[in-house]
Design a protein around this nucleic acid. Sequence first.
DNA 1: CTGAAAGCGCTTACAG
DNA 2: CTGAAAGCGCTTACAG
Lengths: 358, 358
Amino acid sequence: MPKENAVPNGVTMKDVAARAGVSTATVSRVLSGKGGVTPELDQKVRQAIAQLGYYPNATARRLRQRDTRIVGVIVSDIQIPFFASIVVGIESVLSEAGYLILLGNTLDDLANERKNINTFLAEYVSGVIFAPADASDTTHYEKLQRAGVPLVAIDRNPGKLEVDTVQIANASAAARAVAHLVEEGYQKIALITGPDSISTAVDRRRGYERALVAAGLPIDPDLIQDGDYRTEGGYRSMRALMEGPHRPTAVLSANNVMTLGALQYIHENGINIPDDIALISFDDIAWAPSLRPPLTVVAQPVHEIGRVAARLLLERIEEPQASIKHVTLETRLIARASCGCGRSSSLKSGRKLSLQSK
Amino acid sequence: MPKENAVPNGVTMKDVAARAGVSTATVSRVLSGKGGVTPELDQKVRQAIAQLGYYPNATARRLRQRDTRIVGVIVSDIQIPFFASIVVGIESVLSEAGYLILLGNTLDDLANERKNINTFLAEYVSGVIFAPADASDTTHYEKLQRAGVPLVAIDRNPGKLEVDTVQIANASAAARAVAHLVEEGYQKIALITGPDSISTAVDRRRGYERALVAAGLPIDPDLIQDGDYRTEGGYRSMRALMEGPHRPTAVLSANNVMTLGALQYIHENGINIPDDIALISFDDIAWAPSLRPPLTVVAQPVHEIGRVAARLLLERIEEPQASIKHVTLETRLIARASCGCGRSSSLKSGRKLSLQSK
DNA sequence: CTGAAAGCGCTTACAG
DNA sequence: CTGAAAGCGCTTACAG
């Protein structure tokens, strides 16, 4: 059976008040720093606090004030660098503002998502930042919304939910990548995409198609493979493309997790990048420059996504009735070598060519 | 100014009690599930809960019970896959046990570490799992310990702190890697290591030296470079080795972050792995098999480290006086190709050769 | 400016 | 088995 919890420090505000010879109200006033306490008493209280090593109990304060200053954050997997960096971005802004973060790792499982949201409700969180696992089922988020919890959606479109959002320009980012491949001379360009239930996959596909049309190239359904945003899906998709009727000469992979699988197929079959197949992947990851050839990527401003989302949430907490904001951030195409860049010239590893998407 | 916080759901236990025609004590008893309530009342209460959509306020419960069921977790950087996976391991066990996690990302900065620990104290956390930034200064952890907070150290040795620990067999893991290189025929084997303030670096170096001695090879100080466990350090170290007086034929990198830098130097200078230099790195990461050649690594049981640490903490919370436990987990050497494996035979990508360290 | 008192939403001895 | 009451550690009107 659980023993009674350790009481880290027996000292309460009452002890401080007694020692300083004042009421707890006065101690509270000193702590709040809002003034209204004579210098003498202020001095006495501070002394007592120091002598006793007192620090306020956050739980008690939270119960009394209606503001918990806890923010729930829901991502699909903190082990994916993309989400880890977003969380760090969120944290940098929120901790500055005195908020605590409760992290919910859903692994894109609806049951986990629901469980996390119930926890958030029970904790009376001040707000929630989330990347919805499935835009077609947002009923649990509606529950939060009905309860009056400020919400900010990141990365993915939250379906019919009317909330602040922070996203990247997915379509134009994909289009820019495809256009780059076209400029490099590729014509048979394939796409490994994600599930239709996730907006980023849909938008990236749209950008892909738009760029092909703009280049006067046909849209070949055989060259669009659903990789489910997973590693195995990336593997399967790459195989389908390479063994299919219309073998492409270049591929855009819509996220880094699928790229992992695609590369596995490529390596297992001794396929050469970019000579046999050129490759561009969404998401810059630390290892991209170390791949041979270095991986050309569509880099998302991950920290910025987190920071902006955190700021939007803070604003929403201040002004619940303000009009809803949708922030779109730009991406960068970092041309390394997997896209065929410099095939004709000598390659310099580590070189970075930054291009605005659109 | 912050507005009054949203009250997610006005319903309190009092409302439920009123609706069910019982006292709050009875509602509380039903909720606790410890029995002692007649079926009729139990029924009425459950009905009222369902009708009102009631859920208990975790803050209030936490204040009343002395047990917050919050665990603080301190890692140096959640963006490093090694730590992200450990956190996921911790979370899987703790959430099962009804605990919440408060994550502290220190970025190996002592000020951040201190700030996080003060937060943990104010939150009256039930326990803390931590990877100490610097074993030589653990005063802030002693503060936690004096306050009676159960502690479990992971990954790194916590200096003179007497707490439960979960570590890997660092010395033998490093020794195993070096022995493997020796078996492959390498004689001039270098080490890129971390700072002396982090025990894993010291232990890995010891294992490295031990293996050299065991193989009858000399220990050459020029072949031991301090890479500071950072990417830039890995780059600098690799350069020092390749441009130094005693150019090695093989290198062991003591963590994956430094390997990133080492690879950068290698690629920039057109150095061939493994012909010019063989490479083994600590930490398996998702991209290791996708590198050319695939990276041979010392894989740590990351999820297991987290899970074991969480279990130790739960046990410690139950029995604060139990004797201190030190758990050492084994690693696996995953021989891919960067170590020169199969240089003479044809390589099959993706093949995994698992060897027990020790 | 200061303090006594109420109250945040629960749980838990204590009676009955 | 059930309820009235106290109390967890704070903050905040309300008087003075």
